[in-house]
């Protein structure tokens, strides 16, 4: 095993930074990163989009979920360099200016957000699900969202949000 003597070098040399081009929410970005930089860090610190949340840094809570080429991805355990040339979508991409999309509205209608920290990840996982499967069953929803922890809502209202937006008989609960 490699012994870490000097954290900032690899075998006495600085690691090679890379210039990455990626599309974030439809905008072309160019960033320079060391290999060790995670996609989450790149999005939050380099691009400055802080909607994506950092809950555990180990891929267990899902708060950092973003879409990479449409696939729900744990940005806290994905190296930014792995996303060269990819299309990244974050929670900031969902609304059209001041107009929330139907999924966002449904979360508000059902009380699917409380503290709100899991919400960006939940929304992105749900977005990926609905893009693949416009009328998901409860089982489909469970499997799609099992990697997104929520401590506030107990999940029922989140499931209802997705059932509402997919037009499966759930009506708004809040005015």
């Amino acid at each position: 095993m490699n012994q870490i003597n000097d954290r900032t070098t690899v075998n006495g040399k600085k690691s090679r930074s890379r210039v990455l081009e990626m599309s974030i929410n439809g905008e072309a970005h160019e960033i320079t990163v060391k290999p060790r930089v995670m996609l989450l860090e790149a999005i939050r610190e380099k691009i400055g989009l802080t909607g994506t949340k950092d809950g555990c840094e180990s891929g267990t809570c899902g708060a950092c979920t973003v879409l990479v080429d449409g696939q729900p991805t744990l940005s806290c355990i994905t190296l930014a360099v792995e996303c060269e040339g990819k299309n990244i979508r974050t929670v900031e991409d969902l609304a059209d200016g001041e107009n929330l999309n139907y999924l966002q509205e449904a979360f508000l209608d059902q009380g699917g957000t409380q503290c709100g920290f899991c919400t960006p990840g939940m929304l992105m996982s749900a977005t990926a699900l609905l893009e693949k499967n416009p009328k998901p069953t409860r089982d489909d929803i469970n499997k799609a969202l099992e990697g997104n922890l929520c401590r506030c809502t107990g999940y029922n209202s989140i499931v209802d949000s997705i059932l509402q937006v997919s037009d499966q008989g759930v009506k708004p609960r809040l005015l």
């Binding site: 095993m1 690899v10 840094e57 180990s58 891929g59 355990i77 994905t78 792995e82």
Partner: peptide, 26 residues
């Protein structure tokens, strides 16, 4: 080898494995 990284990245983060080079298959 970095082939997804869902096991490797958390392990590198807590430094139970500390490779000096990652060879990605992405």
């Amino acid at each position: 080898l970095l082939a997804g990284g869902t096991d490797l990245m958390p392990n590198m983060r807590v430094e139970v494995v500390t490779p000096s080079l990652l060879v990605s298959v992405s």
